[in-house]
Simulated assay, not measured.
Amino acid sequence: MAESEIVFSITESPEGGFEAQALGVPIFTQAETMDELRLSVRDAVRCHFDETDRPQVIRLHVVRDEIIAA
């Protein structure tokens, strides 16, 4: 039986765009925009899992570092 959910940690790439790393599963993808990243993540999950093992939900956890002056 497949897990019902897979979680991706989303970060801004130093080169621009966004990177997505699955937690607990070796899936990584990147894209220039969040809309493109959503499509890329969905495609990566479909490629990684068989249809019977595929999670039902993909959760994107956006991690954003912000630096401010002290």
Rank of each mutant, 00 (worst) to 15 (best):
V63K: 09
T29R: 01
I68S: 05
R38D: 03
H48V: 03
D53Q: 10
V45P: 08
Q30L: 00
R54S: 07
L39F: 12
R59H: 11
F28H: 14
L60P: 02
I67G: 04
R64H: 10
A69H: 13
V45G: 06
D53I: 00
L60F: 02
P55D: 04
V57P: 00
M34E: 12
T29Y: 01
R59P: 04
D53G: 01
A69C: 14
E32H: 00
R59W: 03
V63I: 10
T52C: 00
E32V: 03
F49E: 03
R38A: 04
L39Q: 14
E66L: 13
L60E: 07
R46S: 15
L37K: 08
E36G: 08
A69N: 13
R64L: 12
T33P: 05
D53P: 00
V57S: 10
A44H: 05
V41L: 10
T52L: 05
R64F: 02
L39N: 13
L39W: 03
M34Q: 12
L37Y: 02
T29V: 03
A44S: 15
R42T: 11
L39D: 15
C47Q: 11
E66Q: 12
D53N: 02
F49S: 02
V57T: 09
P55N: 03
I58C: 02
C47S: 14
D53R: 06
D43V: 06
L37C: 10
A69P: 07
R64V: 05
L39R: 06
Q56N: 11
Q56Y: 08
V63G: 07
T52E: 10
C47G: 08
E51D: 13
V57A: 10
D65S: 13
A44E: 07
D35E: 15
A31F: 08
V41K: 03
